[in-house]
Computed example of a mutant assay.
Amino acid sequence: MYDQHIRDQDAKKFYNSKEWKAARVERLRKDKGLCQQCLRERRIKTADMVHHKKPIREYWELRLVVAYMESLCNRCHTKIDHSKL
């Protein structure tokens, strides 16, 4: 639903790009595949996704900068995304 109704087409194209997929793999590797928010809360959980710390709509030029990303589990990513609504 999100992809069909909310995500803009530039972002959709970006998330399907080989550049994003490579950056995503790099961030997961750097974070050893673990959710960084869970680690801050002293829990160990596998990351399911990579989150942009700065929204790509506002910071398009940083979309592939691995330093501005973090690995998160679905639960933590949902909490972050919903807190911005």
Rank of each mutant, 00 (worst) to 15 (best):
K84W: 07
K54S: 11
A23Y: 02
S17I: 00
K79W: 10
K45D: 03
N16T: 03
V50I: 08
R63T: 08
R63M: 08
R40Y: 05
K12P: 00
E58G: 08
Q37V: 13
I80N: 03
W20G: 00
R43E: 08
T46K: 15
R43S: 05
L72E: 01
K13R: 14
K84R: 14
A11K: 02
L39V: 13
W60P: 04
G33H: 07
K79A: 11
L28A: 02
S71Q: 04
A22H: 01
K13D: 03
S71P: 08
C73I: 03
R29S: 13
E26H: 08
R63P: 05
H82M: 12
K13F: 01
I56E: 04
L72F: 05
I44E: 09
S71I: 02
R63N: 07
R43L: 12
H77G: 12
S83Q: 12
I6T: 11
W20H: 02
C76S: 12
R27I: 05
D81E: 15
K54V: 14
R24V: 05
D10N: 15
A67R: 12
N74H: 11
D3C: 08
R7I: 10
A67T: 13
S71G: 06
D81V: 15
A11Y: 01
D3M: 09
K32R: 13
K53M: 14
E70H: 04
C38T: 04
K45G: 00
D48G: 14
R40V: 03
E70C: 10
R24I: 05
W60T: 08
K12N: 03
C73H: 02
N74G: 06
L39Q: 15
R27A: 08
Q9L: 11
R63L: 07
L64Q: 02
F14W: 06
V50C: 04
Q37S: 10
Q9D: 14
W20R: 00
I6P: 00
